[in-house]
Structures are given as structure tokens and as C-alpha cells.
Simulated assay, not measured.
Amino acid sequence: MRVVMFGYQTWGHRTLQALLDSEHDVVTVVTHPKSEHAYEKIWSDSVADLAEKHGIPVIIRNRPDDELVDRLKEVAPDIIVANNWRTWMPPEIYNLPVHGTLNIHDSLLPAYAGFSPLIWALINGEPEVGVTAHLMDEELDAGDIVIQRSVAVGPTDTTTDLFHRTVDLIAPVTTEALGLIASGQTEFTRQDRSKASFFHKRAEEDIRIDWTWPAQDLERLIRAQSAPYPSAFTFHKGQRLEVVSAVVSEGRYGGTPGRIFYREGDGVVIVAGADARTGRNHGLAITRVRTGDGRELPATEYFTSMGGYLTGRP
């Protein structure tokens, strides 16, 4: 089939590579310009560079326009394949090819449509994550599912771990889905919209630690915001403090959320949970921190004495 590929960052790069390795003919690539957004500088393998290396015409757009529609009509693709296309795609584009548009999304749809699905899924304690190939329609990430593959989430996995596992699914999911479509199959699995969830892009506010969260949730937030993602942060004595690693405490600690309370093992326990006053909660044992000047050190060295509070604001 003649394929036009829409994509960006490493997800798009892997998708384009899968198409180049397949029996299909990539006739044009559409990608976004480089961005300085914190999350778009991560996993930023260039789709444009890969396409140009293989002599494929590249169109760079922040969002579709009339000129792009005209150029796509000229190349007359049989199908569009998209992965990590970051802006709205109008129906005059996704309905243009005879086989429509196949979108590759890094979640197990219908859950975690939208942005940063791996981070949100890890924060929420999902047992598995994955990649879905679905046909695009008028609602974002809501079209019929062609194929879906999953991987388990381990108890110490970070978002970076899950990225590497799911990005390896892109090639087989893409090529298997295209194979089904090329074979003439047209009936696929409708999404159960009662199970759908849609998430926004991550921003600074989303990595600010709220000590009223249970320690188990905070521990997953720390793992979700592992390098190279921006670390979750709090404030100590008015200064920003990033939490690089942490575990749920073995003991249960009562008092006020955010209290710097007790040394336990290799960590320093912070009281956590909205109902911490009951004394039934585990705390968050911080093991490594990074200060505002970039120094990373064990929490037991940073917290030279117990007492005082970590807060959400200076």
C-alpha cells in the first residue's frame, strides 16, 4: 500500500522505520518542527532526518492546513499511519485514503487516550500498559481497534522502563495491523466508550508533590517522573527539592502530611496521606534528593535532623 506517515519524536521514528522495513511504500512523511517543550525534548529521534535519509519527501507542520490537504490529495495514499501526531487532524485528512488513517497509540485503549499515557498509567497503579493500533474517527483515540499488545508493569518499573518495553511493540503492532487491512479485513473491535478515559499533557503542576496523597501513590509518582523526565518536587525551608527516588515505608507513621519524621533504612520517612492523623498510614521514605543547585545526594545526608515540613509551595 501507498502510505503517508504522520509522526513525531521516537514514537514516530520507530513507526516510520517499521514502515520502511515493510512491504509498503512510504510516499510522504508529515512531522512537527523541533520543540523546546520539556516533554517533547525527551525521546526526540527525528522523523524528518530518517525520512530524508531514505529520500522520502517531508512536510513540516505544527497543524494541518489547506496546502497540506492539497499535497496529500496529489500523492493519493492508500492509508495514513500516524503515531504521536500532537495536534488535531481534520476529517478531510484522516478520511482521505481509501483505507482511512491508522493511529498507533501507546496505551491500552479505550483507557488513557490523549497525552502521556505511560506516566498517568504508572501513577495510577495499572497492572499493564501497551500499544493500540486503531482507525481514526472524529473523536480523539476513539476509533475501532485493529490490534493491541500489552506488557506487564513491575513493582519497581519506571516510566523509562515502560517506554523501552512499549516502544519495542510499535513495529509489530504497526505491521500486523497493516497486514490485516491490506488483506481486506474491514470489521474491527469497537471501543467500549464507557471505559474510556482521556488525559492532558503533563505540566509543572503535575509533578508538584501533594503530601495528602497516600505514600503508595507518591512512590509511583516518583517512579513515573524518573529521568529523563522532570523529577517530582517539593519545598523544604522555602527551597525547591526534587525527589529522585523513594519507597513506601515499612512502618506506619501518624501526624501531619509533609512532616519530616524518622530515619528508616536508607531513607527518611515523610508523613503522607490525608488521614495521616489516624496513625494507620505508611509514609514515603525518600532515599535520594536533588537540590536547587543540581546536587544529588542521599536523603540521609540531606536531612541532617528530623522535624520540620516538606510543602507544596515555598
Rank of each mutant, 00 (worst) to 15 (best):
Y94D: 11
V131F: 09
H99G: 02
V29I: 07
G312N: 10
V30R: 09
L118V: 13
L218E: 06
A171P: 09
N103R: 01
I80Q: 07
M1L: 13
V167G: 02
S305M: 06
A111T: 04
D141F: 09
P155W: 01
R259V: 03
V248L: 04
I119D: 05
L108G: 05
H54Q: 10
P127Y: 06
D45T: 08
E139I: 15
G125V: 09
V248H: 08
A38D: 14
S231G: 00
G179M: 03
H164D: 13
W88C: 00
R71D: 10
Y8A: 07
F198P: 04
I209T: 05
T234A: 11
D161A: 09
G307W: 13
E128G: 00
H99F: 13
P110N: 14
G292E: 15
I260D: 03
R263F: 14
E264I: 00
P91Q: 13
W213N: 08
R290M: 13
R295Y: 00
T175F: 05
Y39K: 00
I286D: 04
P228T: 10
L221R: 12
V75H: 10
I104V: 13
L68E: 13
R288N: 08
S35E: 09
G114I: 02
T15N: 11
R14M: 13
L102I: 01
F199H: 15
W213V: 01
G273M: 01
G7L: 03
Q191D: 11
E92N: 15
V30Y: 01
Y39Q: 05
R193Y: 03
T311R: 12
L122H: 05
L297E: 12
T15L: 03
G184M: 03
L19E: 07
H105V: 02
P314Q: 12
A171F: 04
T186N: 06
E139N: 11
D65K: 02
V58L: 11
G238E: 07
A142E: 11
Y302N: 06
A152H: 05
A111P: 00
V131M: 14
E139S: 08
L284Q: 08
G100P: 06
I56R: 04
P97T: 06
R252F: 00
L284S: 10
I270H: 10
Y253Q: 00
V269I: 10
H99W: 14
V289M: 06
D206F: 04
A76F: 03
A285M: 10
A196G: 12
V248D: 06
T304Q: 13
M89C: 09
R14L: 09
R259M: 06
R259G: 03
K41L: 04
E74F: 04
D157H: 06
W213M: 11
I147T: 14
L135S: 13
D49R: 15
H24M: 04
W213G: 00
R2Y: 02
G114D: 02
D157I: 03
V269Q: 07
R71M: 10
S44E: 09
G255M: 00
V289Q: 08
D49I: 05
